[in-house]
Design a protein around this nucleic acid. Structure first.
Ligand SMILES: [Zn+2]
Ligand SMILES: [Zn+2]
Ligand SMILES: [Zn+2]
Ligand SMILES: [Zn+2]
Lengths: 161, 161
DNA sequence: GTGGCATTGTTATCTTATAACACTCACGAC
DNA sequence: GTCGTGAGTGTTATAAGATAACAATGCCAC
C-alpha cells in the first residue's frame, strides 16, 4: 500500500531534520512518531501507549508523554486541543520545500470532520493575517493561535444532508 | 465596587434570557455562573467546585459539570480548550443589543495573555470570514471554529520586552 | 575512572471528566 | 387524591489525561 512508502519518507524526513538540528530521534521517539503517522485520525496519548506496549512492554505514561513532548518541540507533530490528541505535522513531514527552520513553529489551522473524524492541517495566510490583525487591535503582541475548525468534510457533507 | 453591579446585571441578563427560552436558571446554576463571572481569569471546574463547596458542602464534580454543561448549552459561558477552563460570554451577558437567539452559538475568538492570564473574548468578522473561506476551500461545511490566540497583553508587553 | 548530561525506567499521584444509580419535587392525567 | 413522568440534584465510583519525583543506564569529555 502507498501508506508504507509515505510513512517511510516522513520518518526519513524527520530523521534528517533531527540530524540537522543536532537532536536525537531515538528509537523510542521514532516508534511513537511512526504510530502517530500510522493512525488515520488524531490519536490520544493512551491509545498510543497501548500500541506502544506491543513492542515495548515496559512503556508507561511518561514514556509516551516525553516522546510526544520532544516531537512537539521539534514541530514534527501537533496537538489538537479539542481532541486531546496528536497528529503529524504535514508541513514538516510531507515537506513542500519550505524552510526547515520554519517548521519549528509555523502558523497552522486544523479542519476536523465531526462525521468521520478525519483531520487536515492547513496553513491559510488569510486566516493568519486576520488573526494577527485582530490580536494587534486588541493590544496583544507575539500571538500564536490555536485554530481548530470543526465541520463536515466533503464526503460526510455529501452523505448526510 | 463597580464589579458588584456589573455582575448583578450580567446575572439578571442571564435570568431574562433563560425565561425567554423556557429553561431554568436554578439557584445552583446561578451560583456557578456567578462564580465564573467573579473569577478574574478563566476558571477550571475543580476550582469552581472548591468555591462552590463554601456555600454547598454537598457539591461534587457532577454538580459543577452539569451546571457548566447547561451554561455552555445556553451560550452563557464558553470553554477555553487550551486552559480547560471557563469564562462568561461577553456577548450574551454584557449585551451589545445583539439578537438574543444569536447568543446561543456565536462566532468568537479569545485573546489569552501568557503573562497575566487575562483573557478577552472578541468577535472579529474578518477572522470569521477568513475561516469560513478556508473551510469552504477545504470542502468543509457548517464550520464552527475554536480560535484561541495566545500572546502578551498591552500591560505585560510593555513590562517585559 | 569519574563526573556530567541525556535518555529511559519506575512508581505514585494529580487533574479533568463522566458513568451509573438513587432521591426529590413539581405538574398534569386520570 | 394518586399515579406517572420528567427535570434537577445527590452520591459513589471510575475513566481519561497528564505530571512529579527519583532511580538506573549509557555515552562522552576530561
Ligand atoms: Zn504543521
Ligand atoms: Zn468526514
Ligand atoms: Zn460569547
Ligand atoms: Zn497580561
Amino acid at each position: 500500500m502507498h501508506g508504507a512508502t509515505h510513512h517511510l519518507t516522513a520518518l526519513e524526513r524527520a530523521e534528517a531534520l533531527c540530524q540537522t538540528r543536532g537532536v536525537q530521534l531515538t528509537p523510542l521517539r521514532r516508534d511513537v512518531l511512526r504510530l502517530v503517522l500510522e493512525a488515520e485520525a488524531p490519536i490520544g496519548a493512551y491509545a498510543l501507549l497501548d500500541q506502544l506496549k506491543a513492542s515495548r512492554p515496559k512503556a508507561a505514561p511518561p514514556t509516551v508523554y516525553r516522546a510526544l513532548d520532544f516531537l512537539l518541540e521539534q514541530g514534527l507533530i501537533h496537538r489538537l486541543e479539542r481532541l486531546n490528541a496528536f497528529m503529524g505535522c504535514t508541513e514538516a513531514l510531507e515537506g513542500h520545500d519550505h524552510d526547515h527552520d520554519h517548521a519549528h513553529d509555523h502558523p497552522h489551522q486544523f479542519l476536523i470532520c465531526r462525521g468521520c473524524g478525519a483531520t487536515r492541517e492547513i496553513s491559510d495566510h488569510a486566516v493568519e493575517a486576520a488573526i494577527a490583525a485582530a490580536a494587534a487591535r486588541g493590544g496583544f503582541s507575539a500571538p500564536r493561535a490555536t485554530v481548530e475548525i470543526e465541520g463536515l468534510c466533503a464526503k460526510c457533507g455529501a452523505a448526510k444532508p
